[in-house]
Simulated scan of single mutants.
Amino acid sequence: MSLSNRLADDMKQAMKNKDKFKLSVIRMVRSSLQNESIKLGSELSEEAELTVLTREVKQRKDSLHEFESAGRDDLAEKLREELLILEEYLPEQLSDEELEAIVKETITQVGASSKADMGKVMGAIMPKVKGKADGSQINRLVQQHLS
């Protein structure tokens, strides 16, 4: 089932359950998907849908960090709840061991030896793990292995 169909089904269920919070989060994501579709001028592929969903999750994580550092626990808690809902739609995340294996393998494939090769490594890794891992976590692992 595509992400759009799953969101539509879950939106109907949230309406039936009178779950206003989940309904608003799903509507925001569906709106982002529709905006991206309009921008591209065609239906979104599953990969494009995943890209939009990943972007939404990343935006919320960045905002969460800002709210926590500013001491806005009320807003931070709301974002944590939104993230829990959004993460239901992401593919299963890779474990640290799996991610580390992918990083090592890609460094070997690319022939990277120093931090100057960071861009090549990140460019090769990101399509492999799209939606399955956080970019900052990958960045940290690549830096560890290239230093």
Rank of each mutant, 00 (worst) to 15 (best):
R6N: 10
I138W: 07
Q13T: 12
M1N: 15
D73T: 07
L146W: 08
R140C: 06
A14F: 03
G71W: 02
L99R: 02
L141V: 03
V110M: 11
L64G: 04
L84W: 11
E88K: 01
G41I: 07
E105M: 02
E81A: 15
S31K: 15
I85Y: 09
T108F: 05
E47L: 12
D134Y: 09
Q143K: 14
E87R: 11
M15R: 14
K22D: 12
L83K: 04
K78N: 10
A124C: 01
N17I: 01
Q34C: 09
E36Q: 15
S147L: 15
R27Y: 13
L23S: 12
V121P: 07
I38G: 08
S32M: 13
K39T: 09
N35L: 14
I125W: 12
R60N: 04
A8E: 13
K130F: 05
P127E: 09
L84Q: 15
T106A: 13
A101S: 13
K61I: 02
R80W: 14
R80M: 14
A8R: 12
N35A: 15
A124W: 03
K130R: 10
S69C: 00
S31V: 02
R55H: 02
T108A: 05
K16Y: 06
V103T: 04
N17G: 03
I125F: 14
E47Y: 06
M126W: 05
T108W: 05
K132M: 04
R27H: 14
R55F: 00
T106K: 12
K78H: 09
K130V: 03
D19I: 06
E88Q: 05
K78Y: 07
Q143T: 10
S63T: 05
E46Y: 01
R30A: 12
I38N: 14
I138N: 11
L40K: 08
S136W: 03
M11F: 15
K16F: 08
S2D: 13
K12I: 08
I85G: 07
L83N: 04
L83T: 06
E97A: 15
Q93W: 00
K12D: 13
N35H: 14
L83A: 07
S136R: 09
E46V: 01
E92F: 10
R55M: 01
E68H: 00
A70V: 00
E105H: 04
S147P: 06
D73N: 05
D134W: 06
D117V: 06
V110H: 12
L86N: 10
L23P: 10
R6W: 07
D96Y: 06
A76K: 05
M28E: 14
